[in-house]
Simulated assay, not measured.
Amino acid sequence: MPENVELGVEHFGDPAAPLVLLAGGTTMLSWPDPLCEALARGGRHVVRYDLRDSGESTTVDPESPAYTLRDLAADAAALARELDDRPAHLAGIGVGGMVAQVAALDHPEAFAALTLVGTRSVAPGPVDGDLPDHDPAIMKRRFALPKPDWSDRASVARFAAAGAEVLGDDPAAAYARAERVFDRAPSTDPAIQSANHLGMVFARLDCAPRWRERLPELAVPTLVVHGRLDPFFPVGNGEALAREIPGARLLVLEHAATALPDATADEVAAAMLAL
């Protein structure tokens, strides 16, 4: 990583155990505590981390990022090497799944396995014609929600809960997670808080060049996890990833939408540990 970049991390399990590195989407709290704990019980050193401009990682200007998707991928590889001499199991969720795909393609020597959760194989923006895009009716309802006072913790948490209800996620879990995300952000500045909660930095990030056509190059065991009810990245995106990555396994969570429910922790952990 560049000398001026620091990443917020949290450790679970034995530091001498094989590393599972969880890239946030965008903050590390996208990865539920029960899943991290289940992976640690399975004999792994679990490290979840915040992407740049989120959580406890370096925050400069989330509305005008001076780095690219490739830089975020390089962060993942550098962090993996710093934490363990052995290749790591890299996992990414949502936009973190895009980081993970590019990291595994650009830095294959750093990773021994890959898990991709609730993500797709193209950058934010217009989607490929053969991939399902965001559900338009759900997105209309989501974007019609009144914006919160981004400097007010309770207002932000209520907004997160309302958005979760629209998307099919658990509102109570989203409320509690939003409180934690709010508290971990470096300030109550509205731009910083909205970036932490919405991941809008990706709308302004240079994600070129495309990487979907390179997916057949991946030569590590890969697990694709996707919620059957996900209206943001519909399940067809996960199905396409599993088809295009050689030997990938697809795990569809029948009752999940965009977030990983705590109740799925043991099932997802078992699948990840089997790689």
Score class of each variant (00 low, 15 high):
F159Y: 15
H197Q: 12
A172H: 08
Q193A: 03
A161F: 06
P190A: 04
G238L: 06
G238W: 03
A242P: 10
V224T: 06
S151C: 08
A203V: 05
N237A: 06
A164M: 09
A160I: 01
T188M: 02
R158G: 02
V166T: 12
P231M: 06
T264Y: 12
P231C: 08
I245S: 01
R153C: 01
V220T: 07
P234C: 09
H255R: 15
L223P: 00
T258E: 10
A164Q: 09
P148M: 09
T222F: 02
C207V: 06
N237K: 06
R158M: 08
G199S: 11
P216F: 11
E179A: 06
F182S: 00
R214Q: 14
S187T: 11
L241W: 08
D169I: 10
S151V: 00
D149R: 08
D189L: 08
A174V: 01
R228T: 05
A191E: 12
R177Y: 02
H255P: 00
R243V: 09
P146N: 15
D230N: 15
A176R: 14
A178C: 11
R141F: 06
L250M: 14
A174K: 03
T222C: 13
T264R: 12
Q193F: 02
G227F: 02
V201K: 13
A154G: 05
R210V: 11
G168P: 00
R142I: 12
S155N: 12
G163Q: 13
L253A: 03
R210S: 15
G168N: 04
R228Y: 12
R142K: 14
L205K: 09
P186R: 08
P190D: 03
D152G: 01
D230T: 06
R214Y: 02
R249L: 01
S194A: 14
A240W: 14
D206S: 02
R158Y: 06
F143V: 15
A208E: 14
A191K: 12
L218I: 14
H226M: 10
S155T: 11
T188V: 07
S151L: 01
S151N: 07
R153H: 01
T258S: 12
A185D: 00
S151R: 13
W150Q: 07
P146R: 14
L167V: 14
P190N: 07
A174S: 13
K147A: 15
F232S: 11
S155V: 10
A191G: 15
A203R: 13
D206N: 13
E165V: 05
P148C: 08
L241F: 10
P186A: 04
